[in-house]
Measured scan of single mutants.
Amino acid sequence: MAAAAAAGAGPEMVRGQVFDVGPRYTNLSYIGEGAYGMVCSAYDNVNKVRVAIKKISPFEHQTYCQRTLREIKILLRFRHENIIGINDIIRAPTIEQMKDVYIVQDLMETDLYKLLKTQHLSNDHICYFLYQILRGLKYIHSANVLHRDLKPSNLLLNTTCDLKICDFGLARVADPDHDHTGFLTEYVATRWYRAPEIMLNSKGYTKSIDIWSVGCILAEMLSNRPIFPGKHYLDQLNHILGILGSPSQEDLNCIINLKARNYLLSLPHKNKVPWNRLFPNADSKALDLLDKMLTFNPHKRIEVEQALAHPYLEQYYDPSDEPIAEAPFKFDMELDDLPKEKLKELIFEETARFQPGYRS
């Protein structure tokens, strides 16, 4: 834990890192770190609560700039109880001085990944967590956004079992017609939660990839272990087919990539493993919904509104309290091709509203 900075004593240090967030945020305490930044909790002297502050230093890398800009653009436009918001952003007053960006968010005690390492969940908890994931996802999908990296560590939890989806750095506007060349190379989302079509096709992607990830998360809540822990690309596919069985001819016809289709045709026939054999203690309604989410063919996979209306979630289902976005989200430009200098300018502009004396 960093010592509390005395008023006016300059930035606090946390594990050798400068955290320049005073005077409003003090009493910093280390939480963890990701690929390009550290997260601390801090005391907000204005709202009198502890908050989470993520320090991001992305400006050396085009990919990190892209992810940072995506996350900020999306989260500043989203407003939903099951999606983490941005409360404040701290950065230098000029673009030349801006080396880091500090993002202030609600402090959540833990995440689903940490929880599943230590606790076996009751059916009631599984049901409530799944409902909140789908409630947040309904809003995301209504904005025409794909999260693309749903996994237990991106689901934040607090002691009252509130759940918030975080990390929109890989999110995209849904565009089933656009052929994202190089899709697989830039697709760094965790393999275990990846839909089979991501490994088999490169053309376009749809909201059904997020539903697949939610199915993987439900299976993990039922058993405290990942359902498809593939060691590499082909191993991942083999794990999936080992449980779902061989795809039907109709399902194979959806695979545009001939090499991928021929690979699947070359494999020995596998039978589907019954879900109640894998999860003998699970609620039968939970397994019915799991089956509809972990469907090989993305066109037959359940959609988020149908999933919310499934009998497993009937005690929570309330369409009048499951809000959607006001308007579909649009990125003005494809960020993939922009140089990091341009992305830095866009991050600077996007964060201006939090600067003292800002006038829109």
Rank of each mutant, 00 (worst) to 15 (best):
A2S: 13
A4G: 05
A5G: 06
A6T: 13
G8D: 03
A9S: 12
G10S: 09
P11L: 11
G16S: 10
Q17R: 13
T26A: 07
T26G: 03
I31D: 15
I31W: 15
G34C: 03
G37F: 00
G37M: 12
V39W: 05
V39H: 03
S41D: 12
S41K: 07
A42C: 10
D44V: 13
V46K: 14
V46Q: 08
K48R: 14
V49N: 10
V49W: 11
R50F: 04
R50D: 12
K54V: 10
K54M: 13
T63K: 14
Y64Q: 15
Y64S: 15
Y64H: 15
R67P: 09
T68R: 12
T68I: 15
E71A: 15
I72D: 02
L75Y: 05
R79F: 06
R79P: 01
E81I: 03
I84Y: 03
D88V: 12
I89K: 02
I89P: 00
I90R: 03
I90N: 14
A92G: 00
A92E: 05
E96Y: 08
E96C: 02
M98A: 11
D100Y: 15
V101H: 03
E109N: 07
T110I: 10
D111V: 14
D111F: 03
L112I: 07
K114V: 09
K114M: 01
K114E: 10
L116A: 02
K117E: 00
S122D: 01
S122F: 06
N123P: 02
N123W: 02
D124P: 11
I126K: 08
Y128T: 06
L130R: 04
Y131V: 06
Q132L: 15
I133W: 03
G136R: 09
Y139D: 04
S142N: 02
S142V: 06
A143E: 11
D149Q: 03
D149F: 02
S153Y: 03
N154K: 12
L155D: 06
T160L: 08
C161S: 15
K164L: 04
K164W: 04
F168C: 03
G169C: 14
A171G: 04
R172P: 08
R172V: 01
P176C: 11
H178M: 09
H180D: 05
H180M: 04
T181Y: 05
G182Q: 02
G182K: 06
L184T: 06
T185G: 03
E186L: 10
Y187P: 00
W192F: 09
W192G: 10
I198E: 04
I198K: 08
M199E: 04
S202I: 13
G204S: 08
Y205S: 13
I209F: 14
D210M: 04
V214D: 07
C216P: 09
I217S: 12
I217G: 01
I217P: 03
A219L: 05
M221P: 09
L222I: 09
N224T: 13
R225E: 11
G230A: 01
Y233N: 15
L234R: 02
D235T: 02
L237E: 08
H239G: 14
I240H: 07
I243Y: 01
L244P: 08
G245P: 01
S246A: 08
S248E: 07
Q249L: 13
L252A: 07
I255E: 07
L258H: 05
R261P: 10
R261W: 11
N262A: 08
L265W: 01
H269Q: 11
K272Q: 10
K272A: 08
V273E: 15
W275Y: 08
W275K: 05
N281P: 01
K285Q: 12
K285F: 10
L287E: 08
K292D: 02
K292E: 09
M293I: 14
L294G: 03
T295S: 14
N297W: 01
P298R: 05
K300I: 12
I302D: 08
I302Q: 01
Q306I: 03
Q306S: 06
A307P: 08
L308W: 07
H310A: 02
P311S: 11
Q315F: 04
S320W: 10
D321S: 00
E322N: 00
P323K: 01
E326T: 02
A327C: 00
A327K: 04
F329V: 02
K330P: 08
F331H: 11
D332F: 07
M333S: 08
D336S: 00
D337I: 10
L338S: 08
E341Y: 01
K342V: 07
E345Y: 06
E349H: 03
T351W: 08
R353Q: 11
F354E: 12
F354I: 14
G357P: 04
